[in-house]
Design a protein around this nucleic acid. Structure first.
Lengths: 202, 202
DNA sequence: GCCTCCAGTTCTATTCAGGTTCTATATTAG
DNA sequence: CTAATATAGAACCTGAATAGAACTGGAGGC
């Protein structure tokens, strides 16, 4: 059942995923040809057919209602991978089998993001509690003042406000019980920037 | 069972959604034909029939009362109404034109919910900050210990942890600068129970 | 009760546009 | 080279959309 698709077919599929919203209605083969810069709908038809067999596009059994993606594909739109747990002072605890979690668009950025769950109270002064979910944009740099997921000395992960100066990196914990920590730049590996947070009460 | 709709049918439906208000009464087939530039109500009837089967238009079983849409709001499955702002000590500030906001299923309950945005720092010790969005389940009762949206003396709304005893209601603010307040049961009107919270950092 | 009107329904025929099939040619990979 | 993949282009097939006419049945008037 799992039919491999060619590179070109992948390209076309990616195009569909990205641009399907631009069409007011599901596009016809001709319209898609136009959009893709092709001039033969016959060729495109063959590609689409392959995508249908791969289960990525809804089959149109002699019906004329335009090209549509399969239901399965479009509802994963607002899911992000839930990678694991972060507890101050320990490495990120990765979940063996990766889960997904629904994240509203407003809590993420257009860049790749992932979700971690908080263990412990190290960020309590920032209003980030034990059990909260945080949305992190995958990046290796950050602006001063951002809250980052940082891996220190390749061994312990923390969620802290960062302050970078030439030759010196300071991580400010948001719990007044702890003091800011100073490091050399090569000790600190930024793994992402905090962009959202969610908590459930029930 | 889910009947796929044809392109033209989608067009007609879109037209209905957009222009139905322009008619003083639900339009007849003939009127709609006129508006759509068609000259055969027979053809239009067939399209409408398809929309009825798709559940988008109310069936009219041999009655003559014009075309009506079904109250079918299911397309915005994970949207909740954003009603307004809540600031401790003032009534809820209602937004004039109601907006919607996307809320993950995990942050809401199966009961009716709505969203408010926090103004001020009255819940800061609970990790609920100025600007945060809270998800509230619409209820008029709550269990002790829940955080509720309560309207006190019909004039000021607050987000507080509730403790109900016979003849006495205590609201515990989560900011240590303030003291718990005691009321008579008929002074406090519960408007909902906190079930989720979201914050954005970018 | 009967009649008329008219919105809604049913039917058929016709046209048309969107999907399908095919062949030929170009391009790329192995 | 050969094989696999892409593209162009034409021919074709058929469901969808339309027009038009005829039928149905409920509402209202008499």
């Amino acid at each position: 059942m799992v039919n491999t698709i060619t590179r070109r077919q992948q390209e076309i599929y990616d195009f569909l995923v990205e641009n399907l919203d631009d069409f007011s209605h599901p596009p016809t083969l001709d319209e898609l040809c136009m959009a893709l810069g092709l001039s033969s709908k016959g060729s495109l038809h063959k590609q689409i057919q392959a995508l249908i067999e791969a289960g990525l596009v809804e089959p149109m059994n002699n019906l004329r209602r335009g090209i549509r993606l399969t239901e399965h594909q479009q509802q994963e739109e607002d899911m992000l991978p839930m990678l694991g747990y972060i507890a101050a002072g320990r490495p990120i605890e990765v979940i063996e089998q990766q889960e997904s979690i629904q994240v509203p668009e407003s809590l993420r950025t257009s860049k790749p993001c992932y979700v971690l769950q908080i263990k412990g109270d190290s960020m309590i002064d920032e209003g980030i509690f034990d059990g909260d979910f945080i949305v992190v944009e995958k990046r290796s740099q950050a602006r001063n003042g951002s809250i980052v997921v940082a891996l220190v000395d390749n061994s312990e992960a923390t969620l802290k406000r960062i302050e970078q100066k030439p030759g010196k990196v300071t991580l400010h914990p948001a719990n007044s019980d702890f003091k800011p920590m100073h490091y050399k730049p090569d000790q600190v590996d930024i793994q992402g920037v905090l962009v959202g947070q969610m908590r459930r009460y029930h």
